[in-house]
């Protein structure tokens, strides 16, 4: 690891000002991706601003028709949250299947979506559930937030504070995990909220999470699993690596969408 300066911020303002005034500052959330990246010398930030002591970034609350999760809430906390389990059980299940127990104990929702790994689970959950990402300066819809491979709409000095999820009528996430890493080779979140059906795909595309309108049209209002299974997805632009060919991933998109639709009921 290259050397860096480290600071633990005690408030959102302190974190933003420390990051902005640093030469090349980086926020540190759970560190489940950032620390391994630093160890491999793939990144060289001048400063790390640790967010773990900022208490108002942690927690789950329900308000009206939505559930809001603080950005520093761990995957384990989301998976075991009574509110998430009763209002959006699909999201609790998604969080409970990320990585391994030690990753879930430290990894956070804000860290995961800020990183926007093309095979991470949360981006699919955010897009299918039509979540809103709340930062220190604005609100960004999930559709506009995830802009490409490891790319988001976040600007320098912008800190994710929470994510708000509208409570769906029904939803489910189906993941075909890599057996070693547990990252999604393909994962599909299907959700129906206020009559709108959405299907978001992670793991498949080389530009990260995307909505499949073909799958959404096939699912329709009834979440027709067999129609989703029959959709032929193009392998153009899908990842092709040692884990799976792009054709195999294309096939998995329909299969995982159909499994998610069945699970959503």
């Amino acid at each position: 690891m290259y050397d860096f300066k480290y600071q633990q911020a005690n408030s959102q303002d302190e974190a933003v000002s420390a990051q902005s005034s640093a030469e090349d500052g980086s926020f540190l959330a759970g560190g489940m991706t950032l620390i391994p990246t630093l160890k491999q010398r793939l990144a060289q930030p001048s400063d790390l601003v640790d967010l773990s002591a900022i208490n108002d970034l942690v927690g789950v609350s329900e308000e009206g028709d939505s559930v809001t999760i603080g950005s520093m809430t761990t995957h384990a906390s989301v998976a075991s949250s009574e509110i998430v389990n009763s209002k959006i059980p699909a999201l609790a299940a998604l969080a409970g299947n990320i990585g391994d127990p030690q990753v879930r104990n430290r990894g956070t929702i804000g860290g995961s979506i800020a990183n926007n790994d093309p095979a991470a689970d949360y981006p699919a959950g955010c897009v299918a559930l039509n979540a809103t990402i709340i930062t220190n300066t604005r609100k960004i819809s999930a559709d506009d937030f995830f802009t490409g491979l490891f790319e988001t709409a976040l600007e320098d000095g912008e800190l994710i504070t929470a994510v708000t999820f509208p409570i769906p009528d029904r939803a489910a996430y189906a993941k075909f995990p890599n057996p070693a890493s547990r990252y999604a080779i393909v994962g599909v979140m299907v959700a129906q909220t206020g009559g709108e059906t959405r299907a978001a795909v992670t793991g498949a595309s080389d530009s990260g999470v995307f909505r499949s309108t073909d799958i959404e049209n096939a699912l329709g209002d009834t979440l027709d699993a067999s129609a989703a299974k029959a959709v032929s997805i193009s392998s153009d632009g899908l990842n092709n690596d040692i884990h799976a060919s792009s054709e195999y991933r294309a096939h998995l998109v329909s299969i995982m969408a159909s499994r998610a639709a069945t699970a959503a009921g």
Partner: peptide, 15 residues
């Protein structure tokens, strides 16, 4: 009280 991988955590994070 929670299990963590100590190779993926900085000592300063355990302050």
């Amino acid at each position: 009280g929670k299990s963590a991988k100590s190779c993926t955590m900085l000592a300063v994070q355990a302050e």
